[in-house]
Write a protein that binds this DNA or RNA. Structure first.
Lengths: 219, 219
DNA sequence: ACATTTTGTTAGATGAATCTAACATTGTAG
DNA sequence: CTACAATGTTAGATTCATCTAACAAAATGT
């Protein structure tokens, strides 16, 4: 049995993992707002349970079992977010905190029902993939808007950093999943972009914003 | 701040209270499946927080503050049950265990939204009243079916003991809220009733069943 | 390359919620 | 009315998740 606390550590480990699947104790400590010694001792416990590979002074890595369990928590989180937006009428900027709570509900039938009512969605309201019941992700290779070039037209497909502040900013600019953005020009010195979309006047998006928007190129 | 554990003690105290509002340590211990010494120490803690009146060897009583907090937990529980049945398609026998988990979600907007989507319901799927946001109950005075007499026709308005087994039994007999039951006769030696409803063949309901059905007399 | 900063670990304490064993009070049945 | 049963409390231990203080290792910068 995996406790609520352990679920939170697994989810954070999964979300923080770099290309090599590695996470530092310090990063994890900051992410969870829990002191490093506590993190170290929890990592030893999760290593006992075969959920994490742990060696002193080495970066942390989830085991295959750990990745699966993390994916199942993320599945519960994202199904909840999708339900809150699609079926309950919440805005995409409101659902993260509620889903953080609901994701710990222990009832397979409950999440199966959410899944069914939603028509077995593959992505959540922020464009992130929803793992299947075996913890498998259907990864889609999007580009960051910041890696695109002037003249291209792209479709917003997902947002990274789903903080309420950032999402409210996007609401104000009327940018949502599916919005088609035409890149007019890119400032080389700060990476900001002048863009237009939806018949709105041309607008500037800072590099920070462009890095957080994942897009698909349209032909 | 009231912890999840404390919420469970308050809810149990509220549900077990007799006419005088009193509960014994032993009953509470059995209800929660927690040993008596643990209950005693939690009662001292809740007394510190002014949620319970506690004196050694005396029955337990919720304070007004304790009653209100208990009612707010019960509100979250019953709104959740209503949503699970009305909006998600669960059977009334499935929702108790799920609601036990969801009731601990800390998000006022979430429960306000449930309330709104349900059209501010006054009763839950088992006919129990849903307290308002101030913890006030709109009590309705129903009769137990077991207190009714031969010849009367009554409408099922609520069920006590919402265990899944009992509710499945009612499902099998096609008894639900609103079912109109005609009492053909009552066996004086064991209190069982011969009844008919919905054009079904006459059927016997044991005293145990009749005690758990709350009804309104129809003219 | 060595001194300093950053990162990570060990040791020991704390608070919440639980337990068992032993003792105390209350209720009840001859 | 007394003895036994039922109920309730005290004392002390345990587990989980957290902390602080002190120490150790690794990374970094001049």
């Amino acid at each position: 049995m995996i406790s609520l606390t352990e679920e939170n550590y697994l989810k954070a480990l999964f979300n923080l993992a770099n290309n090599a699947g590695e996470v530092n104790v310090n990063e994890l400590s900051k992410q969870l707002d829990i002191k490093m010694p506590t993190v170290t001792s929890m990592m030893k416990k999760l290593a006992e349970k075969k959920l994490v590979h742990y060696e002193s002074y080495k970066p942390l890595r989830l085991t295959e079992k750990g990745k699966k369990e993390a994916a199942l928590v993320i599945r519960k989180h994202r199904l909840t977010e999708m339900f809150l937006v699609d079926k309950m009428g919440f805005g995409w900027e409101e659902v993260h905190d509620i889903a953080e709570q609901v994701e710990h509900v222990r009832s397979a039938v409950f999440f199966d029902k959410l899944d069914e009512l939603l028509g077995f969605p593959k992505i959540d309201p922020h464009g992130a993939p929803i793992p299947d019941k075996n913890g498998k992700f259907a990864w889609i290779a999007y580009d960051k808007l910041s890696d695109c070039h002037a003249g291209e037209t792209v479709k917003v497909s997902a947002v990274i950093h789903t903080s309420s502040e950032f999402l409210k900013f996007l609401n104000n600019r009327e940018i949502r999943l599916g919005t088609k953005i035409k890149i007019k020009s890119v400032e080389s010195f700060d990476g900001s972009m002048i863009v237009s979309y939806d018949n709105r006047p041309a607008d500037t998006l800072t590099h920070t914003v462009c890095e957080r928007l994942l897009v698909e190129k349209t032909k």
